[in-house]
């Protein structure tokens, strides 16, 4: 009985010590993961800003005009057309399908 009590006591001490040691180990692990998380969040933020900078309308317009030789449509070049199936009569119930066509690029032949 005495031996058993000492054994149980030693086990409890071991469990207590093991718990404390493991807690510190997990603490280090958490700290390392936190640092990784912070680094990744920082990278994510930098990439978001970079994406936003690169996708700015101003920049794309500048690239389109200066590098690709494109130009904004001039007055009257944008024509909004209504597309309606041939067998459907005009009706207020029909929802028109809007297409935007720059006049310069309208095909001369069949669509």
């Amino acid at each position: 009985m005495k031996t058993f009590t000492v054994f149980v006591g030693l086990c409890l001490v071991f469990v207590f010590v093991w718990e404390r040691v493991d807690m510190v180990r997990v603490g280090y692990q958490i700290e390392r993961l936190k640092r990784d998380k912070t680094m990744l969040e920082r990278q994510r933020d930098e990439l978001r800003v970079k994406f936003s900078t690169l996708s700015a309308s101003d920049r794309i317009a500048k690239l389109a005009t200066e590098k690709l030789g494109m130009s904004p449509p001039q007055q009257g070049q944008i024509i909004v057309v209504q597309s309606r199936p041939r067998n459907v009569r005009p009706s207020s119930d029909v929802v028109p399908v809007e297409l935007k066509v720059a006049r310069n690029y309208l095909p001369t032949g069949r669509l």
Binding site: V81, L99, V101
Partner: peptide, 22 residues
Amino acid sequence: GEQVLSYLGVPSNEPVTLAMAL
């Protein structure tokens, strides 16, 4: 105005069909 209306997809007051546009 012209570019923004086109961007917003606002239907024109004088809708034209594709054939008319052509």
